[in-house]
């Protein structure tokens, strides 16, 4: 059931992406509205698939890279839908839905395989740890996306090309606001996630912190996000610089997520 629902969600994600892109081409709000509903149903079906998987397997549905990608895709679309209600900037959907789709497709590659999972991944602390850090990552992904959009819009306005494509992007202030909300909540969740992880680490490895490459790399991302927040709130950085920083921080976070497993030997080799 879980994988059937996931496939349906995949198709719906694809349709909503087509809809959002079509809405840019024909420039009709109505098309974007329909796409939002399609995305909403994709999200609902995806939620069902995650719950089914949880019930079917008996452990939290975030124990490997593919499941995690599926979870992030789910979180990104959920968070986007919340923003949609709050900010009414539907155009963001055209940028979010392809990202969600790519993650969901990558996830689908090996999602059906039902590999036996290591015993240390059982338990509630690890589930909490993973879900918090992944939701945090989803928020950082959106922050990165709004950062990219900010840079594009800034460049268009600055270079006096504020027509055509620029019309489709939200205002600078809106993009900066979305970026800010995402990073603040993302940072909060990542911090909680790291704490939950260290409690779990104490249970399975005996100490809270092992200086494992994964942990170090996560710490670096955490420090960059902390720095970013400091610059924004204490120094008063806004706009372009923050946008750059949130893109850079996310690239490092991505490396933490997939790169570390490839280039380093890590005890944290599940995700």
């Amino acid at each position: 059931m879980g994988s059937l629902f996931f496939k349906i969600a995949l198709v719906l994600y694809f349709l909503s992406m087509l809809g959002y892109i079509a809405s840019l081409v024909v420039r009709r709000v109505q098309v974007a509205k329909v796409s939002t509903w399609v995305l909403f149903s994709a999200f609902a079906v995806h939620t069902a698939s995650i719950i089914f998987r949880w019930v079917e397997t008996g452990y939290s549905p975030v124990t490997n890279l593919y499941e995690s990608l599926s979870f992030i895709a789910w979180a990104v679309s959920g968070i986007y839908l919340i923003f949609q209600v709050k900010t009414k900037t539907r155009v963001l959907g055209a940028f979010v839905s392809p990202v969600v789709l790519v993650m969901a497709i990558t996830a689908s590659a090996r999602l059906v395989e039902d590999a036996a999972i290591p015993a240390i991944l059982m338990g509630s602390w690890v589930s909490i740890h993973v879900m918090l850090t992944l939701t945090g990552s989803a928020l950082f992904a959106l922050a990165c996306l709004s950062g990219i959009m900010y840079l594009v819009q800034d460049d268009l306005i600055r270079n006096k090309k504020a027509y055509g494509f620029s019309r489709l992007l939200p205002s600078l202030r809106e993009l900066d606001r979305i970026n800010n909300i995402c990073i603040v909540t993302g940072f909060f969740l990542l911090t909680l996630g790291i704490i939950a992880g260290s409690i779990w680490a104490r249970n399975v490895w005996g100490s809270h912190w092992q200086w494992d490459p994964k942990q170090v790399s996560t710490l670096i991302s955490w420090i960059i996000y902390a720095l970013l927040l400091h610059q924004r709130f204490a120094i008063g950085w806004k706009g372009r610089k923050i946008a750059f920083l949130s893109i850079a921080a996310f690239v490092i976070l991505l490396f933490t997520f997939v790169g570390v497993n490839i280039f380093f030997i890590t005890v944290h080799n599940f995700i």
Binding site: A162, S171, R173
Partner: peptide, 8 residues
């Protein structure tokens, strides 16, 4: 119009 692109 430009002001709206900047400030919403």
């Amino acid at each position: 119009e430009l002001a709206k692109k900047i400030f919403g």
